[in-house]
Design a protein around this nucleic acid. Structure first.
Length: 565
RNA sequence: CUGCCCGUAGCUCAAUUGGAUAGAGCACCAGCCUUCUAAGCUGGGGGUUACAGGUUCGAUCCCUGUCGGGCAGGCCA
């Protein structure tokens, strides 16, 4: 089917080129929404009508006549017709659609993937500072980031997953300070520990109970090991440096458990502090000054970010000599570029959208060859959680919030991933815990997984060798339901490319839902294990191919494809 | 007040990036299991795409304005 499509497309391209040199670039097929409009359609005639000064319908007729003389059209096309203002609708012969079954069964897990082109890219996501467990928002980021990485892998990229965090900033001081007080036996609400949110002093404290756990383990001189670090507590409550390092390692380890429960693995953890110790921050600032993109005012150093479309100029170095937060960010992105990543995607909450303009401005001002619009950003909105019909409040200050692990334990890794990916990133999402555990067709995860399990069950009942299905005669696959299913299977590769390009894993969830629905309809319409051997094998090949594509699509989302349910 | 994002069926969301009669699920109504998993299928009702203009063969999509919601706007991160 895919080779069929490329053959047809090439013939169309040549025909267009013939009508108007350069017009070959307009060659493209759409998938009509309505079956009555055929299997493939092209709008080329309408697009060329103006430059050629021809009526689009007349042009369509010329184009059809030319196409009908070509070999691919004679072999694969059943009918060509012109509709509406000048659409050309193509109806394929069943044999053309049957090709996809063979292709899927031959390529198995690689079906839908592009050949590797060797280029590498970096995706930065989650990037939670080690000041508490991962919450639902991080979960959305984890699901999105991992799926986007998988999507680009299918398009031939070598993808690097990176987690960026700060182990030395103001928030870490707050963490250290709070842990020390807990270790000394104080708790929120004591005289030395203000908790009133109205009191600015309360910002220097974290109130969550998990701080007490850290303090207890610190006093017990425990050793903690995280993915990227290991540390043994001194147990000395006056040893702030030891408390800091222990607390950071402790919370990194907690986050690792969260990520593990989510089946997510990072290639690298990058420390903000390293940007200072390696001199990258100083180097970046020096570059900006040398390029004349800065000025001194009121005792501070400013970046002329308005030269690059920002609303106003931004302070880089404060009166006290320290840098504002976006300066290390600029240094970090220069480092990404110098590490060889010409394509970089950052996944962040929409509350950080203000930083995009100034980071990009800083990168342009540094003038190190970084193109405009680098890096790409995917912004996502907040997630709200509803359980038992009531919203579960998320409040970091009060120390009570829904952690990613809570959510996974209440439901499942598969449900959390699928749910968090089933919406466009920029739409606010309400996660309904009761829906995620529901075992009916309200629940899209089960609906899709069920289709896969159902197929596996049929294959098991048959009991033959699945590998032998790759070369069976498919001529029997000619019912409307079978043709619809084959057509949908054939769309999978294009769907993947579009989803990657648009940073849109939700496309995959919608496709899988549609594929599952199409299979369920087919299953209802045609019995698979019939007596006629040829028909049976053809149908088995079709459903085996369907299972394979369901499996491949779910894998992109990081969701399992169970054999039994 | 300013900037960015969003506004689609009663609810939650899509719409092949400017294409044909705007589609799914839930909810509601009516059907389908002595046969491969009914966690399923088939059919039905439900819309002035927030509103008003503009651009063109053609607009949910692009431009302008209005209304409504979210997030930002610090020498905090």
């Amino acid at each position: 089917m895919l080779t069929v499509k490329t053959e047809l497309l090439e013939a169309l391209r040549l025909a267009l080129e013939d009508l108007l040199p350069g017009a070959g670039a307009k060659a493209a097929f759409e998938s009509p929404k309505v079956a009555a409009h055929g299997d493939l359609a092209t709008t080329a005639a309408m697009q060329l009508a103006k430059p050629l000064k021809l009526n689009p319908r007349q042009l369509a007729e010329k184009l059809c006549a030319a196409l009908q003389l070509t070999a691919p059209y004679q072999v694969w096309v059943e009918a060509l017709d012109i509709a509406g203002p000048g659409f050309i609708n193509i109806k394929l012969k069943p044999a053309a659609k049957q090709q996809v079954v063979r292709e899927v069964l031959a390529q198995t897990a690689r079906f839908g993937m592009q050949a590797g082109h060797g280029k590498q890219m970096l995706v930065e996501f989650v990037s939670a500072n080690p000041t508490g467990p991962l919450h639902v928002g991080h979960g959305r980021q984890a699901a999105l980031g991992d799926a986007i990485c998988n999507l680009f892998s299918t398009q031939g990229w070598k993808v690097h997953r990176e987690f960026y965090y700060n182990d030395a900033g103001v928030q870490i001081q707050t963490l250290t300070h709070s842990t020390q007080l807990r270790a000394k036996g104080f708790k929120p609400g004591d005289d030395c520990w203000p908790t009133d949110p109205e009191d600015p002093a309360s910002k220097a404290f974290y109130n969550g109970d998990y701080i007490q756990d850290i303090a207890n383990d610190f006093l017990a001189k425990k050793t903690v090991k995280a993915d990227d670090r290991e540390f043994t507590a001194s147990g000395d409550v006056e040893d702030l440096e030891s408390i800091r390092q222990f607390a950071v390692a402790y919370l990194r380890n907690e986050q690792d458990k969260d990520l593990q429960a989510f089946n997510l693995k990072f290639d690298e953890y990058y420390l903000e502090s390293s940007l200072y110790t390696s001199g990258r921050v100083e180097a970046a600032v020096g570059k900006l000054i040398a390029n004349g993109k800065t000025y001194e005012q009121d005792g501070a150093l400013w970046l002329k970010s308005t030269d690059y479309g920002d609303d106003k100029d931004r302070v880089m170095r404060k009166k006290d000599g320290t840098y504002t937060y976006f300066v290390p960010d600029v240094a970090y992105h220069i480092a990404k570029w110098e590490r060889g990543y010409q394509k970089v995607i950052n996944i962040q909450g929409t509350d950080h959208h203000g930083t995009i303009a100034r980071v990009r401005a800083g990168l342009q001002a540094a003038d190190v060859g970084i193109p405009q619009g680098y890096p790409d950003y995917v912004l996502h909105t907040m997630v709200r959680v509803v359980k038992g019909g009531e919203e579960v409040k998320i409040s970091k200050r009060a120390g009570s919030y829904v952690t990613l692990r809570d959510l996974i334990e209440w439901t499942s890794k598969d449900a959390v991933r699928f749910f968090l990916l089933s919406r466009k990133p920029d739409t606010e999402y309400i996660f309904d815990v009761d829906l995620a555990v529901a075992k009916n067709n309200d629940n899209p995860v089960y609906y899709v997984q069920y289709a896969h399990a159902r197929i596996c069950s049929v294959l098991a009942a048959w009991g033959g060798n699945a590998a032998a299905l790759a070369n069976v005669d498919l001529a029997a696959l000619d019912s409307p339901q079978a043709q619809a299913l084959m057509l949908l299977l054939a769309k999978y590769p294009d769907m993947l490319s579009a989803a990657a390009e648009g940073f849109a894993p939700h496309d995959v969830t919608f496709y899988l839902r549609e594929l599952a629905a199409c299979y369920h309809s087919y299953y209802d319409a045609e019995r698979i294990l019939v007596d006629d051997e040829a028909v049976k094998l053809a149908r088995l090949a079709l459903v085996a191919a369907t299972a394979q594509v369901l499996h491949n699509g779910l894998a992109v989302l990081g969701v399992s494809a169970p054999q039994k349910m």
